[in-house]
Design a protein around this nucleic acid. Structure first.
Lengths: 175, 175
DNA sequence: ATCCCCATGTCTAACGGTTATCCATATTGC
DNA sequence: GCAATATGGATAACCGTTAGACATGGGGAT
């Protein structure tokens, strides 16, 4: 959970930490299930220390003044604005699997083709799950859109596994 | 850099930390450029503390006995074996961008379609870079294979951006 | 010979994301 | 009434990453 996501959610309205988590889960659909509240609070605490948000005592829950409402500071607001204008994308994370194949082969630990095959089965299973989940969501909803991205990702990764299979098959022939 | 990758590389042969990094970089091609040695040493230290590898004083460099050679312990060997048999895949990481769009729209910070457009340009640039890099690598090499995966990934993500554009265009019409 | 740069090799503090678990209070269902 | 659940908060620890520091030796330029 990137810090800026939390800040951006607070740009709309101040919230309790728990409420923030609920809003994030709502936006993520099934993919937000695994998000735990501890994560949100850790991030909120760090952001507060950095002066990007402030804590107010809840006014709404008159009999529960121990409840915190988190709200952006001007610095926090500015950070959100900057973030919106920034362009970034997650770093590719295929290296671990790639290195697994290489290490397994070079150390004689396993047949890379077997590893690829097993992985393919898992990705196919995940693909089916994601497609099923997407169809269960309302059309054009936030969750459906995100799941669509996951589906496309998995399809691309499966194509890469095909390429891995070909590559390692060829190497096996050579050696 | 996942711990098990380090362990698996050591399954082939014991190495200096710096040597390990070189071997990893070799396997990753251009994508390994950013990997710094500090990262490897942090991981090696943690693994040593966990009893998965041991340190021996370098015998090869007779006049440089302060050099360390890292080698697997039996527990480390076992962990590698287990890892090879495990099936996992990186968690999807499209949520941050997705939430950026949602937050920007709901807090009135920016037009999601503008964000998508800007991001698309960036991904296209990265795609060209990756394709160019792939062509510069020897055919069927480790680096070429990994770059192929990156290319496929970027293509999938661009497709998702198309879907995002459609989705948010439709929402704009509705509201 | 001396100096500087680079390569090999090692180390470390800090940041940020994640996870598991704990605590507190109020509400709901049996 | 009691247990389970929901709302709300907190924290230690782990792990990957990053930036930067340090040490030694070799090679090239002066």
């Amino acid at each position: 959970m990137q810090q800026e996501v939390i800040l951006a959610m607070l740009a709309k309205e101040a919230s309790h930490g728990y409420e923030l988590r609920a809003r994030l889960r709502d936006a993520l659909g099934p993919l937000g299930e695994a998000m735990n509240a501890g994560q949100v609070y850790v991030t909120l605490t760090r952001l507060e220390k950095a002066g990007l948000l402030a804590v107010e005592r809840s006014a709404d829950d008159a009999d529960r003044s121990d409840r915190k409402v988190y709200t952006l500071t001007p610095n926090g607001q500015q950070r959100v604005t900057e973030w919106i204008a920034e362009v970034s994308w997650p770093k590719p994370d295929l290296a671990e699997f790639h290195l697994k194949l290489i290490a397994a082969a070079s150390a004689g630990l396993a047949d890379p083709l077997t590893i690829v095959d097993t992985q393919r089965r898992e990705l196919l299973r995940r693909l089916r799950d994601a497609q099923r989940a997407a169809m269960a969501e309302p059309s054009r909803s936030n969750a459906a859109l995100l799941l669509e991205g996951i589906v496309l990702r998995l399809q691309a990764d499966l194509r890469w596994l095909e390429a891995c299979e070909k590559n390692w098959t060829h190497r096996r022939r050579i050696s």
